[in-house]
């Protein structure tokens, strides 16, 4: 197993190099970003000076190699628009997004299981029908639209939930300020409900359907029939036998799920003016703030890789058929 982990980590280095190279090239082919950082009355000399100061006068491969060299020394460069260390800004925006993603993941996975199980147990009834209709709908509706509708309905019309914003929990926690963190916690959750649901709705729907079909599959298997015939209670059959096997495909999804949810986060953070990394990186791309984009992309990739590794390890634990 250790060789597996070491091999995966070595591969990750290549993956991250590839990811930074791609984003570097993508942002550079659009032309010289210098013009974003000079005033409209700047003379040609001033423009040339700024270009030199930003390092854009160097050939591309030199710029990239210089960047890699700096990264190797832990220097991710300064954000061009904020003029502060890029990594600091990214790590500052990360906790909010992690809160949102975890919350969404909870929705997407924890709620999917009961929904899927009920739909499977009551196959063909109205329960199944309504759950599956909701799930189908959830997989067909764009998340930004859902977000705006929820703001108007739950936020404005009913006034039950906050419309936008964010109350930090992880940030004070990481700073060691436990009092603030836990005083904030109810507020944090309260502010997370709408954006969390908007981000998670698609995944929740998909997972519910996934759980349902794998549950149906498991319920048809011999060992469940055997267990039933032995007179074990239905509850025990479901929890001990069926459920344990039914959520395997969901666990597989967790790694991919994270990447998928992050995709939704870019849009939803804009709708709910949520100060996370999705909006940060979208703005950074728009501003061609290359160091900031690079730092975000590295952070996101690392999280993604580590998460997938963990998922594979967990999977190996719960499914004896898989060997690493």
């Amino acid at each position: 197993m250790w060789t597996f982990i070491v091999r995966r980590l070595l591969q990750s280095v290549i993956v991250i190099l590839g990811v930074t190279l791609i984003s570097f090239i993508a942002l550079q082919i659009g032309g010289d970003p210098t013009y974003l950082f000079v005033s409209e009355r700047a003379t040609d000399e001033e423009i040339a000076m700024v270009r030199r100061a930003l390092g854009f006068d160097q050939p591309l491969h030199i710029q990239y190699l210089t960047y890699l060299g700096n990264v190797a020394q832990g220097d991710f460069g300064n954000s061009l628009s904020y003029r502060q260390p890029a990594m600091e800004i990214v790590l500052g925006a990360l906790p909010a997004t992690i809160e949102l993603t975890i919350f969404a993941m909870l929705f997407a996975i924890v709620l999917a299981i009961p929904f899927g199980v009920f739909a499977a147990l009551y196959r063909g009834t109205a329960v199944d029908g309504s759950i599956m209709t909701m799930a189908m709908f959830g997989q067909s509706v764009p998340n930004f639209w859902l977000g705006i509708m929820m703001i108007l309905f739950f936020g404005l019309y009913l006034g039950w939930l906050p419309i936008s914003g964010h109350v930090p929990f992880l940030m004070p926690l990481l700073r060691g300020d436990f009092v603030t963190a836990f005083t904030n916690l109810p507020q944090t959750i309260y502010y997370l409900i709408l954006p969390g649901v908007a981000v998670a709705f698609y995944s929740l729907s998909r997972n519910a359907r996934l759980v349902r079909s794998s549950m149906l599959e498991v319920l048809g298997q011999d060992y469940v029939r055997t267990a039933r015939s032995k007179g074990i209670s239905e509850y025990a059959v479901i929890t001990h036998h069926a459920l344990r096997n039914a959520w395997l495909p969901v666990v597989t999804m967790i790694g991919l799920e994270f990447g998928f949810l992050l995709g939704g986060v870019v849009v939803i953070e804009t709708v709910f003016s949520y100060p996370g990394i999705g909006r940060l990186v979208f703005n950074a791309i728009n501003q061609r703030d290359i160091p900031l984009v690079q730092a975000s992309v590295i952070v996101l990739s690392v999280i993604f890789i580590v998460l997938n590794l963990v998922v594979d390890l967990v999977y190996a634990r719960i499914d004896p058929r898989v060997k690493l």
Binding site: I148, L152, G155, L156, G159, S164, V271, F272
Partner: peptide
């Protein structure tokens, strides 16, 4: 000073009194 980029969200926050 709150940053609320989406126009509808800004309007909703104003109407809601926040």
């Amino acid at each position: 000073w709150r940053i609320i980029p989406e126009a509808s969200t800004r309007t909703a926050e104003l109407i809601a009194g926040n």
